[in-house]
Amino acid sequence: MAGLRERQKADRERRILGAAVTKFRAEGYRSVRIEDLAEMAEVSVGTVYNYYQTKGDILIATVAMEVEEVLASGAEIVRAPPPGAEEALLSLIFSYYDHSLEYLSKEMWRTAMALAIEAPGTPNGRRYAELDARLSAQVTDLIRALQARGEVRADVDPVAMGQLIFNNLNQMFIEFVKEDDMTLETLRSEVAAQTAPLARLIAPEAQA
């Protein structure tokens, strides 16, 4: 029975988040009420509040759902990176970007970022920061994997380099979601141009 209850609980949560993705994208985060989400998810309003205290909690949960899938995809790249630092780094970065609008619109991302920045000490703020930290750590893991294959210089600090690369890809993503007219192709092109010289600097032949 406990297993059945857990499955039912997980199913209700998936329906709530599915409703949030659909409603927030179609109507805008600020226009949607908790009652609208409950109706679409076919649960009571009270059930929604059993899972999430605020609409902001639901939005950050959709971010977490997005990032968890991104991390899973990135883990495959870290386990078997493409050859060469530049290609491997761009493969990971582009896997982040290409999945970024799967569940969230640009407006949803802007709102989630604002929630995290306005109240960094709240559970939502801490959860958002923790997701960023896990993405940054994955970039670091990729640097380590490339070092182990001899494709990144041994004297490169993988943590500092991972943080540097993540900070840049994250800032560029912020610029992307700020501009409704900016395309994913433009984002990829600009980040590729920024990453290429950095990849050359950390490549073993740069030691000479």
Score class of each variant (00 low, 15 high):
79 R>H: 14
74 G>Y: 12
96 Y>I: 04
47 T>A: 05
13 E>R: 14
120 P>Q: 02
193 A>L: 06
88 A>N: 11
178 K>V: 07
87 E>H: 06
132 D>I: 06
102 E>V: 09
196 A>Y: 15
65 M>H: 11
162 G>L: 06
189 S>W: 03
46 G>F: 15
78 V>N: 07
165 I>V: 10
119 A>V: 03
24 F>K: 11
186 T>L: 05
43 V>Q: 02
50 N>C: 02
44 S>M: 13
27 E>G: 03
52 Y>I: 03
148 A>F: 01
5 R>N: 02
90 L>H: 09
63 V>A: 04
127 R>H: 14
53 Q>T: 09
45 V>M: 11
81 P>N: 10
53 Q>P: 02
143 I>K: 04
14 R>N: 11
101 L>A: 11
7 R>A: 07
20 A>I: 13
196 A>W: 12
177 V>D: 09
74 G>Q: 15
119 A>L: 01
135 L>E: 12
22 T>W: 00
100 S>Q: 06
174 I>M: 09
12 R>D: 13
180 D>S: 14
190 E>V: 13
25 R>L: 08
89 L>Q: 09
183 T>D: 05
140 T>G: 12
96 Y>V: 04
197 P>Q: 04
12 R>S: 15
208 A>C: 02
168 N>Q: 11
134 R>N: 05
35 E>W: 10
47 T>L: 03
191 V>T: 14
12 R>I: 15
23 K>H: 10
96 Y>E: 04
201 L>G: 06
78 V>F: 08
150 G>F: 08
2 A>C: 00
128 Y>G: 08
54 T>N: 03
31 S>L: 13
38 A>S: 10
93 I>D: 02
98 D>H: 12
113 M>V: 12
138 Q>I: 11
42 E>S: 14
12 R>H: 14
160 A>N: 03
114 A>P: 04
